[in-house]
Design a protein around this nucleic acid. Structure first.
Lengths: 233, 233
DNA sequence: CGCGCGAATATGTCTATACATATTGAAGCC
DNA sequence: GGCTTCAATATGTATAGACATATTCGCGCG
């Protein structure tokens, strides 16, 4: 457990957090009032309040005026998801990484591509680990947002890595689903047609302006996304 | 934009947050000092400090003594993932929800089930939206951690909902992948064999003790998980 | 018995002040 | 010039007091 942090308000917060996370204080249980804690820790109410506000922000307790504070019932509705940086992941496993650019063209955005508008760079490429295909990537880059991209051929660096290093984004949305491989997709990934693929679709914006859309297809059995919720802070 | 909340410190926080999220203040840019903001908003330093601390906790700014506060560079590697509460999701869409228990047995944990040990309750059931199968669920519950579960038949309430309301958990891990449907799975979900399924595998613990393991299979084309990083709060 | 009203309680927020601490920048010295 | 030293700055934390506000409890009245 972690109840012994630096500052006093952190210590108060940590001790209560431990009691809750360990299950010693069950959901619904009343948490001592600020005045009680103030006496218990020998400090001012503001210090206790800071700890309690933080716990409330975190969603660990629920506070109601006059009634008091109570241990919250956990909600399963969200967790932190690690989004893969494909190149870093492959290199970390000690395999050779390569990005093969399969197709590169400039075109106008189509009506159904609600996410992007205007001049686009459309790319298709394959992330290769060792000499095994690892992911198939289709990407659109808005040339209005990233004019520099027009002059690049992405031979060495994958478009994802280049964008990450050159274009700061402010918002991103990831959509995860499962799809069956089309004939073409199966061929490129060296799988059978109809094989289950994990599809990660991501759109990013900068200051509200769309920057890029990408869809990555991973062989389903070979790849896991892991999301955690827990004591890690 | 959202800069006009209730309290003053929330307003300060909101205004700065908007400036950052809109991109008007680029990553790396200096944020005004607490003294400047204090003048600008006509309030005490503590009030400004509360807003700034919250922004720092959120990861939107980085603070360094003497140097000042700066807009943080966004990290790509994680996002908040919404984990589906299946029942709530179906009801929210206005469809009738039903959980059909298909199988229920007690047995010992097998060696390969590293996550759980001892006496288990093994359940299989189908989440049904309207009269369409929505997800197939296999679940193991540790009777050491949740002895009350032994006496339940989960006819009305799904095991997931029951556990959520009765057993507080402290840690959870979600693993997401894509698999092809087996014959049995395809039959239960009314799909063709080999159809792509989105598999969500979740394990939860309470105070380090394993509570439950569950694997939910969703028809891939019909279901999306969405993860966001950005202005949604 | 039920209803309304006021008092007590716990949280919510803000102020003004104080002292601690890390870091920077400039002055002074060899 | 390069080094140390010292003061200025900005954040980090804590205090005591004040007023606001929501909610609950109990009392008295019809």
């Amino acid at each position: 457990m972690s109840g012994a942090e630096g500052t006093l308000s952190q210590r108060i917060r940590g001790e209560i957090e431990d009691l809750i996370r360990s299950g010693a204080w069950a959901p619904g249980r009343k948490v001592p009032s600020e005045l009680e804690l103030m006496g218990q820790f020998g400090c001012s109410r503001m210090t206790v309040n800071k700890a309690m506000s933080a716990l409330a922000d975190e969603g660990l307790i629920v506070r109601r005026r006059r009634a008091g504070s109570f241990v919250a019932r956990p909600r399963v509705h969200s967790a932190v998801l690690d989004i893969p940086d494909i190149q870093a992941e492959i290199v970390a496993r000690g395999e050779a990484y390569r990005f093969d650019l399969l197709d590169r063209r400039r075109r106008e955005a189509r009506a159904e591509e609600a996410a992007l508008a205007g001049d686009l760079l459309a790319l298709r490429g394959l992330h290769v680990a060792g000499d095994r295909p690892f992911a198939l990537e289709d990407r659109l880059i808005s040339l209005a947002a990233v004019p520099e991209a027009a002059g690049l051929d992405f031979a060495d660096e994958s478009p994802g890595a280049w964008l990450l290093h050159h274009v700061p984004w402010t918002e991103a949305e990831n959509r995860i689903s499962a799809v069956g491989a089309s004939g073409e997709e199966a061929r490129l990934l060296a799988l059978d047609e109809g094989a289950a693929l994990l599809a990660v679709e991501r759109r990013t914006w900068r200051a509200g302006e769309p920057v890029t859309w990408v869809r990555q297809l991973f062989p389903g059995e070979a790849y896991d996304l892991v999301a955690r919720f827990g004591p890690a802070r």
